[in-house]
Simulated assay, not measured.
Amino acid sequence: MIARAPYLFLLLILIPDVYLDLHYWCHKLPVGRRVVRWIPSILLVAYTLMLTYEANFIPDNPTILYIYLLLLGLIAVPKAMYMVLSVLGLSVCKLFHRKKNYGNLLGLLIVPVIWYIVLYGSFVGFKKLEVNHQTYTSEALPKAFNGYKIVLFSDAHVGSYTVKDQWILQKAIDSINSQKADIIVFAGDLQNIQPQDLYPHMDILNKLKAKDGVFSVLGNHDYAYYLGCDDAMKTANCRETVSLERQLGWTLLRNESQSIERGKEHIIIAGMENDGDGKKFPQKGDINKTLKNTTDKEFVMMLEHDPSAWRRKIIPDGRSQLTLSGHTHKMQFSIFGWCPMSLTGKEYSGWYREGGQALFVTAGLGGLIPFRFGAIGEIVVITLKAQ
């Protein structure tokens, strides 16, 4: 992660200290105290440089990365925010010919707010879980499936749970099972970057039960896409992840579909491979292969990890009435119900509709980084209603 753009992290660390030193420290502090003020940033720079030599997206021991990001949030980010507000304050002073820089005061006030967000999100928010109840109504739904209960979860990222944090995952699995669902669906990103992430948690994941079983698709992290190795090794790792999911008793759908029956009626559950932008995220979805055995008259519930595929491939195809996705994590951050990701105009959380087609994007369960503020981890219970 750090190795992909180390200069951005270095700039975040160094520029605020350069600003503070030139505008305040050098005028008011002796050399010794100025050096002391620089020590935290110097240590963060050394930490950053160490992480740039990590071949994988995150270290094999992710705690090394988590500590780094925590320190970044507690030291570098508050300084950067103070600098931004101070600069804005200076601009106002020059524009209106004022002497007092109120940006400095705002900068000081925002520091404890940032500390609260970082500490709460890391040590409290990530451990919270909510059950989100939703209803989906469709004219195309067969009457026999009226009241059919789906439990959706996504983005478990089980590699982020240490042995002492396994209770968080266990709580989620218990909550899912307590819903007594007709079907459980998982929308991808079970691991962080490699199948070894799953080993300590297999017994917990194996406990998922539903009348019609557990169905899943792969997410971008499930393809070993972020390992620093050759393509052959990535393929072998992905193959092992697929094997482990099937060992759990889950039905993993890879550009394929199955029929679920109730008496003489049925619906189709389809699973398309992760279909991202093909640059940062794997683009492997084949909508025609996924739905090759379906007709326009059947009700199709599509699992697709990346919600961007909904407009790119699923809507133009027109055969899937309901699509369930994850991937965005709702940015793992929202404040007073507002998420910065809403500014992108992309589908990132909740319901979206286009004609007779609907998409639901879950905020997900966990995260590659164990942090959540506002965007609480969730499991989603969707009850189908025939119109």
Rank of each mutant, 00 (worst) to 15 (best):
V18E: 06
Y24Q: 03
Y24S: 10
L29N: 13
P30V: 05
R34D: 01
S41C: 04
V45N: 03
L51C: 03
E54A: 07
A55E: 12
I58C: 02
N61K: 08
T63V: 08
I64L: 08
Y68F: 15
Y68W: 09
L72Q: 08
L74H: 14
P78K: 00
M81F: 15
M81C: 14
M83L: 06
S86Q: 05
V87G: 07
G89L: 00
G89Q: 04
G89M: 02
V92I: 09
V92Y: 03
V92D: 05
V92Q: 12
K94D: 02
F96Q: 11
H97C: 03
K99Q: 08
K99T: 06
G107I: 14
L109D: 01
I110G: 06
V113C: 11
I114V: 12
L119V: 14
Y120I: 08
K127G: 06
E130F: 02
E130V: 10
T135L: 09
Y136D: 10
A140C: 13
K149G: 12
I150D: 05
L152E: 01
F153T: 10
V158Y: 07
K164V: 09
Q166A: 08
D174N: 15
K180W: 09
K180E: 13
D182A: 11
D182N: 11
A187C: 15
Q191H: 10
Q191E: 11
Q194K: 15
Q194C: 10
D197M: 01
Y199N: 08
P200N: 11
H201N: 03
D203I: 02
K211I: 12
D212Q: 02
Y225Q: 08
L227T: 00
T235L: 07
A236W: 11
R239Y: 15
T241E: 02
R254G: 07
R254V: 11
E256A: 09
E256W: 04
E261S: 13
E265V: 01
E265W: 05
H266Y: 07
I267N: 01
M272Y: 13
N274E: 09
D275N: 13
D277Q: 01
F281T: 05
P282G: 07
T290Y: 11
E298Q: 13
F299V: 01
M301L: 14
R311E: 05
R312K: 13
D317Q: 08
L324Y: 07
S325L: 05
G326F: 13
H327D: 02
H327V: 04
H327S: 07
T328V: 02
K330M: 00
M331K: 04
Q332M: 13
Q332L: 08
I335K: 10
F336Y: 12
W338K: 15
W338D: 04
C339R: 00
C339W: 00
E347F: 07
E347I: 04
Y348L: 06
S349E: 02
G350H: 03
G350P: 09
R353Q: 09
Q357I: 03
A358W: 12
F360D: 06
L368Y: 04
L368P: 05
I369Q: 02
I369W: 01
R372Y: 02
I379H: 06
V380P: 00
V380S: 11
T383V: 15
K385N: 09
